[in-house]
Amino acid sequence: LEARLEQAGVLKKVVDAIKDLVQDCNFDCNDSGIALQAMDNSHVALVSMLLKSEGFSPYRLDRNVALGVNLTSLTKVLRCAQNEDILTLKAEDAPDTLSLVFENAENDRISEYEIKLMDIDQEHLGIPETEYAAAISMPSAEFQRICRDLNQLSESVAIEASKEGVKFSCSGDIGSGSVTLRQHNNVDRPELSTKIELTEPVALTFSLKYLVNFCKASALSSVVTLSLSNEVPLLVEYAMGSGFVRFYLAPKIGE
């Protein structure tokens, strides 16, 4: 594998977004790019990430390879890169190590690091194609604020989507709270719009601890999309220019 990324910051943000949810995981390298799928330890959430091969220049791969990486170790090495550095990932066919090279734009500094890889026997889950009953896109910063605010009052949030809007509500020992967003279109700054596509009303309850954790991906995209259907996991998606980070969260049950 040899994959060169113009901005090391992209990988830094991706790893920052998922490192508190999963510790050890395989980066699966194939023709479509570098992908990752992992569940958290408690098997409540699943993260799915893809950095498409088009996002790298060049992207060269002789045969598919799974790079078993400890994300804490990778974070330590990525801290040694500037966001604007050019990052090149290199690995042999049956690798023991992953090589990371950081070069500044002026091309007068080259940093070379290696991290040890591990064998990770990870089960891959098939995610069924789902026609979601509701898809809500909104500013990622706003979603982050709502999750953090409500998490002060409660450990779970009810998300209700209807044609009137989307309502996030919670109640806890000290009281209760809710935030309702109505659809609106910001013509000048579309990333600040809230869009609600609805085929039928949805009401589900989720753990806020996980949602707050997902919001660490907010640096990746100014827009987040929430996709919901009754009785299936919530999909929280951060799209990047050439890839995505998706989080799936199992709903609370037995209300």
């Binding site: 569940m39 408690s42 098997h43 409540v44 959430a45 699943l46 089960e123 891959h124 889950l125 098939g126 995610i127 069924p128 779970s156 309850t205 753990s207 299936v232 996991p233 799936y248 969260l249 199992a250 709903p251 609370k252 049950i253 037995g254 209300e255």
Partner: peptide, 14 residues
């Protein structure tokens, strides 16, 4: 709210 579902019960093993 009484319980937390697990993600494996929604997605199938490959």
């Amino acid at each position: 709210v009484t319980g937390q579902g697990s993600i494996n019960s929604y997605f199938f093993k490959k």
